[in-house]
Amino acid sequence: MTEERDDIVILTDEDGNEHEFEVVDYFEVDSKEYAILLPLEGEDEEEEEEALIFRVEEDEDGNQVLVEIEDDDEWEKVASAWEAMEGEEEDEEDEEE
C-alpha cells in the first residue's frame, strides 16, 4: 500500500513528463495565496534544487489549482516576500540556539 501525502503534488511539463514536488509552504501577498514547491527528483544530489512559486486559485468546481506566475512585477513582489519570510525564520532559529 502506498501512502498518499497531502504535501506532494505532481505537475506535468510541456513535454507531458510528470514531476513530483513537495509543497513546502503557503503564504499570502496582496490577498492572493501562493505555494512554494521543491522538486523531489534528485534529492540525493549535492546540488540544491531551486524552489518554484505558484499562485493558488480555485477552478470553476472549487478545486485548488496552481497557476504559473507570468507577470514579472508580481513574480518579483512574491519572491521578495518569500525571501523576507525565510530570513525571519532563520533569524528566529539563530536566536533559539
Results as ranks from 00 to 15, higher is better:
residue 40 L to F: 11
residue 24 V to R: 12
residue 7 D to G: 01
residue 16 G to C: 03
residue 20 E to M: 10
residue 15 D to V: 12
residue 27 F to R: 08
residue 21 F to E: 07
residue 33 E to F: 00
residue 64 Q to M: 10
residue 14 E to A: 03
residue 26 Y to D: 05
residue 38 L to N: 15
residue 5 R to I: 00
residue 86 E to N: 15
residue 24 V to P: 04
residue 32 K to M: 13
residue 81 A to N: 04
residue 16 G to N: 11
residue 80 S to A: 09
residue 92 E to L: 13
residue 62 G to N: 05
residue 4 E to Q: 08
residue 94 D to P: 09
residue 28 E to N: 06
residue 2 T to W: 02
residue 87 G to L: 12
residue 97 E to N: 15
residue 65 V to Q: 07
residue 55 R to W: 02
residue 16 G to Q: 07
residue 80 S to C: 04
residue 76 E to M: 11
residue 51 A to G: 07
residue 53 I to A: 04
residue 37 L to K: 02
residue 2 T to V: 03
residue 29 V to I: 13
residue 14 E to T: 05
residue 7 D to L: 01
residue 85 M to F: 01
residue 17 N to Y: 03
residue 68 E to Y: 09
residue 88 E to V: 01
residue 61 D to I: 00
residue 55 R to V: 01
residue 26 Y to P: 08
residue 46 E to F: 12
residue 59 D to A: 09
residue 14 E to C: 07
residue 73 D to G: 15
residue 78 V to S: 00
residue 88 E to F: 04
residue 21 F to M: 06
residue 3 E to W: 05
residue 37 L to P: 03
residue 54 F to N: 03
residue 51 A to P: 11
residue 57 E to W: 00
residue 91 D to Y: 08
residue 50 E to A: 15
residue 38 L to A: 14
residue 2 T to Y: 00
residue 10 I to W: 08
residue 11 L to A: 08
residue 27 F to M: 06
residue 25 D to S: 06
residue 82 W to D: 00
residue 56 V to A: 11
residue 57 E to A: 07
residue 74 E to K: 12
residue 87 G to E: 15
residue 22 E to V: 09
residue 69 I to R: 03
residue 52 L to D: 08
residue 27 F to A: 03
residue 93 E to M: 10
residue 35 A to V: 04
residue 6 D to M: 12
residue 11 L to P: 06
residue 19 H to E: 01
residue 9 V to H: 01
residue 45 E to W: 11
residue 95 E to Q: 06
residue 68 E to V: 15
residue 60 E to W: 12
residue 61 D to K: 05
residue 2 T to M: 04
residue 18 E to Y: 00
residue 48 E to H: 14
residue 22 E to I: 06
residue 33 E to C: 01
residue 62 G to L: 10
residue 15 D to S: 10
residue 58 E to Y: 07
residue 83 E to Y: 07
residue 84 A to N: 09
residue 40 L to V: 13
residue 18 E to W: 00
residue 67 V to K: 08
residue 89 E to K: 12
residue 2 T to F: 04
residue 34 Y to R: 02
residue 13 D to F: 02
residue 41 E to R: 09
residue 6 D to A: 10
residue 76 E to K: 13
residue 2 T to I: 07
residue 9 V to N: 01
residue 26 Y to M: 05
residue 46 E to W: 12
residue 87 G to H: 14
residue 16 G to W: 11
residue 49 E to T: 12
residue 89 E to F: 14
residue 79 A to T: 03
residue 75 W to E: 15
